[in-house]
Amino acid sequence: MMTIFLEQILNGISTGAVYAIVAVGMTMIFGVLRAINFAHGEYYMLGTFGGWFVISTIGLPYPAAVIVGVVVTMAIAYVIGRFVMQRMIGMPEEGSVVATLGIALILQNTVILVFGGGYKFFSAGYIEPVFFGDIGIAQQRLLIIALCIAVFVGLELLVTYSRMGKAMRAVSQNVEACAVVGIDVRTVVLSTFVLGTGLAAFSGILTAPVNVSVYGGMGEIITFKTLPIIVMGGLGNVRGTLVAAMILGIAESFVAGNFGLQYRDSVGFVTLILMLLWRPHGLFSARARF
C-alpha cells in the first residue's frame, strides 16, 4: 500500500517536472508579452517530432536527438518570433489570442501533412526501471526530475545575473521604464520566446520515451494543461510555476491511480475552473514574479 503511494508520488513528481519545464516557458513569454501563447504545446510537439525523426531515420542516439529537437524548434520559433510575436508587443489581447491559435493550427497541420496523421512510436531513452527497495521508477523519470531541477536553477541564475535575464525581468515589470533605460523590448521578447519554446521542445523529447506515442495533435492537451499551471503559479511567476506543476502532476498521478486513467486529464481543467473562481491571481502573491 505504502509502496504504491510512494510510487504514485514519484511518478507524479516526474510528470510535474515535465509540466514545469513546458509551463515555465509559457509563463515567461506571458511575462514579457502579456499574452497567452496558445500554440505553446505545438512547440512541445515539434521538439518531440524532431527527436523522433532523427532517431527513426538516421538512428541518432537519444541525447543527440534531444539537442536536434530543441535546436530545430528554436529555429522555427525564431522565425515565428520575428514575424508574429514581435508584432504582438503592445497589441490588444484579442490579437494575440487569434494569432497564437492560428500558429497552433498551422504548425499542427503542417506536421500532419508532412508526416501523416497516425501515431508514431518513440523508441529511445532510458526506460528500464530502477528500484529503491520495493519502489520502482523508470530511469527516464529520474532523468526528467534531475533535468527539471537543472532547468530551474539555470533559469534562476539567468534572470538574476545575466544581462538578458535581467532585461527579461525588466520587460515583465515595466515596459515604459525599459524605454527610459534603453532596453530593446523587441529583442528581449524574441529571446524569451525562443527560450520558452525551446524549453517546451525539451520537455516534449524528455517525456517521449515514457509517453511513447508521437502524433501531430499531441500539443493541444499540453497547452491546456499548461494553462491551469501558469494561472495557479501566478502568470509570469517562475517559482510559482514549479510548485503549481508539481501539484498538478502529483494530483493527476493520484487520480489516475485511484479513480482511473480516464479521469486524469480532467484534473487540470477542474483546477483551472476552481482557480479562476477562487484565486484568479494564482496561489501566490501577485508580487512574487520572476
Binding site: R169, A170, Q173, N174, E176, G182, I183, R287, R289
Partner: peptide, 19 residues
C-alpha cells in the same frame, strides 16, 4: 512612477546603466 517595482534599488540602478 517609472521603475522596476520587483527589483531592488541596487538592481534598478544597475538597469539604469543598461546601455
Amino acid at each position: 512612477r517609472c521603475n522596476f517595482p520587483l527589483m531592488t534599488v541596487q538592481e534598478n540602478l544597475e538597469m539604469a546603466a543598461y546601455t
